Computed example of a mutant assay.
Amino acid sequence: MDILWTLLTLPYAPVRGVTAVVKVIAREAESRQRNPANIRRELEELDRAAAAGEITESERDRAQEEVLDRLTGAVHPAPAGERRRAGDGGRRGTAAPVVRRPTGNGGRQARPGRRAG
């Protein structure tokens, strides 16, 4: 049976290989992103840029907060009126996840305008 399965799924072998490589790359990128040495280097770079006048103090503070949030995994809602930036990964200002509650009718959801039952 294993030989038959291997032969039938052989055309998908390149896809499985690419998927495995992508998973390894994603794991490595995440570990580098959360590495305390890299976080410290980024914070030092922000301090250097602020001291050189390349960025303002408020920009430095905001960037430091984002770097530290990445380290701790904290997510803060965006202040009212602030738009999300393309590079923030959609973390700020996102809605809470939808929680489904039992309906008492065998898991079926009632349609609008109809009673459950």
Rank of each mutant, 00 (worst) to 15 (best):
M1D: 12
M1Y: 12
D2W: 11
I3F: 08
L4M: 11
T6G: 07
L7V: 14
L7K: 14
L7T: 11
L7G: 13
L10K: 12
A13I: 08
P14L: 11
P14R: 13
V15K: 13
R16N: 14
G17N: 13
G17C: 06
T19F: 13
V21D: 15
V21P: 03
V22H: 13
V24R: 15
I25E: 15
A26W: 06
R27D: 11
R27L: 12
R27N: 15
E28H: 15
E28P: 02
E28D: 14
S31Q: 15
R32K: 14
R32F: 14
R34G: 00
R34A: 10
N35T: 05
P36V: 01
P36G: 00
A37L: 11
N38S: 10
R40P: 01
R41N: 12
L43W: 01
E45M: 07
L46F: 07
L46T: 10
L46E: 06
D47S: 12
R48H: 04
A49S: 02
A49N: 03
A51G: 04
A51K: 12
A52V: 03
I55N: 01
E57V: 02
S58W: 04
S58L: 05
S58F: 07
R60V: 00
R60A: 07
A63D: 02
A63K: 09
A63C: 00
A63T: 04
E65F: 02
E65T: 07
E65L: 08
E66F: 02
E66L: 07
E66N: 05
V67A: 08
L68N: 09
L68M: 12
D69Q: 06
R70F: 00
R70A: 06
L71G: 00
T72A: 03
G73S: 02
G73A: 02
V75N: 02
H76T: 10
H76E: 03
P77G: 00
P77M: 02
P77A: 06
A78E: 08
P79A: 07
P79H: 05
A80H: 09
E82T: 12
E82D: 05
E82I: 04
R83F: 04
R83K: 13
R84E: 11
R85F: 00
R85P: 00
A86C: 00
A86S: 09
G89T: 10
G89P: 04
G89S: 07
G90H: 09
G90I: 10
G90Y: 06
G93L: 06
G93N: 09
T94A: 15
T94E: 14
T94D: 12
A95H: 11
A96T: 01
A96F: 01
P97I: 05
P97D: 13
P97E: 14
V98K: 11
R100C: 03
R101P: 00
R101M: 08
R101Q: 11
G104S: 08
N105C: 13
G106P: 03
G106S: 02
G107I: 06
G107D: 06
Q109S: 09
A110D: 10
R111S: 10
R111G: 09
R115H: 05
